[in-house]
Design a protein around this nucleic acid. Sequence first.
DNA 1: TAGATTGTTAATCGATTAACAATC
DNA 2: TAGATTGTTAATCGATTAACAATC
Lengths: 214, 214
Amino acid sequence: MEDITISKAVIRRLPRYYRYLGDLMNEGVERISSGELSERMHVTASQIRQDLNHFGGFGQQGYGYKVEYLYHEIAKIMGLDMASHMILIGAGNLGQALAKYTNFRTRGFLIEAVFDKDPEKIGQAVYGDMKVQDIAGLEEYIRTHQVDIAAIAIPKEQAVPVADRLVKCGVRGIWNFAHTDLAVPDDVIVENVHLSESLMGLSYRLKNSIREKK
Amino acid sequence: MEDITISKAVIRRLPRYYRYLGDLMNEGVERISSGELSERMHVTASQIRQDLNHFGGFGQQGYGYKVEYLYHEIAKIMGLDMASHMILIGAGNLGQALAKYTNFRTRGFLIEAVFDKDPEKIGQAVYGDMKVQDIAGLEEYIRTHQVDIAAIAIPKEQAVPVADRLVKCGVRGIWNFAHTDLAVPDDVIVENVHLSESLMGLSYRLKNSIREKK
DNA sequence: TAGATTGTTAATCGATTAACAATC
DNA sequence: TAGATTGTTAATCGATTAACAATC
């Protein structure tokens, strides 16, 4: 796969295309041109065509793009055609919210186990009949189940050693909600969600009355 | 204020500098050079100096930067020297988690009221003695209280009309967790947290084994 | 066929990195 | 003063936009 050159910026835009295409499908729109999509999404038509052509020619000259086809193609590109098996570390407020969130599930992101070290939480049901497990059993679980992505929703001090354990067991995808950077080997992917930093960014822009430049 | 030109990229990096400087303070480090910080953060020293100089000369030639001073200066730049008064729309799983999250509070982001339309939830305590209020009273609340930022944690269909109501009442900062883009006037700032999209980005990178390019 | 719109190359714009003079 | 490191200008790199030939 010669995917060496696709930039972070393009990747970040893919889910947004996907969302708009889904909306269009729901509206019953069958075809759309980069120009029309451009107006809806407030990005240039040129960027849309450029972005999509990183992955292949999905359109048809003189016609545009078939909404449903493009929708499914983007899903494939993002790996949504196959379920992702997930575990969640941390059954605190945020962890509970993530576990209960059905939206991920419908997109094929399946949280199948939840771990915590707090004896008070262990054994509690989080979603359906899924119960919080003792984090001591983390390695054993990973050995016996497929784990594509581990979501980390614990305080930052604990996040680093837990990430190390995950990596050691061969987990290659980490969705990190802890307020720290995780040092991992090159073949492990970390996606950070730093809520405080997002809020600070908002605070800055509010204070300085700047809208996003792009 | 001639803040016209500070790019989104720089703003996004500010909270990260802030975090590292906080860590350094906790370690008792008093001064740091862009070179040392560069190694810790895995960004170029050049970028650090360039970024900081957008806001003024905080360093000293031949010496470096005073950690504590720089820390507080960045806090000021991001508006953390003054409390932000927040409200939260939506007392679902995610909303509850946000309301209970003490980290925001310690940084001066104060969630002071929570609204929901669900009669089951109205009246429930969320954090301390803060109870979920009927969203019917939203306008009345905003008229009688300062509201700098409203966090929106409700399904996307409801998010758009609620955002309109907020804007109409003069709220200028929106922290949007709903999976939709909000169309707001130019002087209103929206910071989006699209969790599904973050997860899809992770999925893509995992599937294509790409680490972040930057 | 004529019209429309893509795919793709070229031009522009902006952000990052390198270099170095200023200065503590 | 000599050494270190900033602030800032210049060079490079990459991403976005514009233009247009290819083609449905």
